Computed example of a mutant assay.
Amino acid sequence: MVLINLLLEFITLHKPNEELLLRVNESYLLKIFSTSVAQEQVKMLLNTLPYKHSINICYNLLKLLKNLDSLQFVVDYLLNNVTNDLLKNVQISLKMLSAFTQSEQEQLLCLIYKPINIIETLVMNTKLEKLSTVLNILKSEISHTECNENKLCIEKIDEVLRNYAEKSLDFRVITQPNPRLLKNPRMQINAVYRFIIFGYKW
Rank of each mutant, 00 (worst) to 15 (best):
F10R: 03
L30V: 02
L108C: 10
L22P: 00
N117E: 13
N25H: 04
L161F: 05
C153P: 08
S27H: 14
P179S: 10
I57A: 06
N47V: 01
I137K: 07
K151Y: 05
T101Y: 13
L13R: 15
S36L: 12
L46W: 00
S132D: 12
L94C: 12
A38V: 09
K151G: 01
Y77F: 15
E159H: 07
Q102D: 15
M96P: 07
E9Y: 08
E141T: 02
V173Q: 15
K63L: 13
E146Q: 15
H14R: 13
K63S: 14
M1E: 15
T175M: 13
M1T: 12
S140C: 06
K139H: 07
A165F: 00
D158Y: 05
Q91T: 02
L128C: 05
L109F: 11
C58R: 01
T133M: 10
N80K: 13
P177E: 07
M96C: 15
E18N: 04
I57G: 01
E104R: 03
Y77A: 07
E9G: 03
S168Q: 10
F171R: 09
E18P: 00
M44F: 06
Q188T: 02
T145C: 11
T121G: 00
N47D: 14
K31S: 09
F195S: 05
L79F: 01
C153E: 06
N163D: 15
K43Y: 08
F33A: 03
L6K: 11
S143H: 14
E155Y: 11
C58G: 04
L79P: 03
S168R: 08
K167S: 14
T48S: 12
V75Y: 00
L128Y: 14
F195P: 00
I57N: 04
L49K: 01
K95N: 15
N150W: 09
E106H: 14
E129H: 08
V160F: 07
T83I: 11
I57F: 06
T48E: 12
N148W: 03
L182C: 07
L68I: 15
I137M: 04
C147E: 14
R194Q: 11
E19S: 06
L8G: 03
S93Q: 09
I112S: 07
M187F: 11
E106W: 10
L3P: 03
N56H: 12
Y113S: 08
I197V: 03
K52S: 14
S140P: 04
K43F: 09
E26T: 04
V37S: 15
L135G: 00
N117M: 06
I137W: 05
N25S: 11
N81Q: 08
H144I: 08
P16V: 01
R172V: 11
V134M: 04
N17Q: 10
I32D: 03
D170T: 08
F10S: 07
I137D: 07
I11M: 03
C110K: 13
L7D: 03
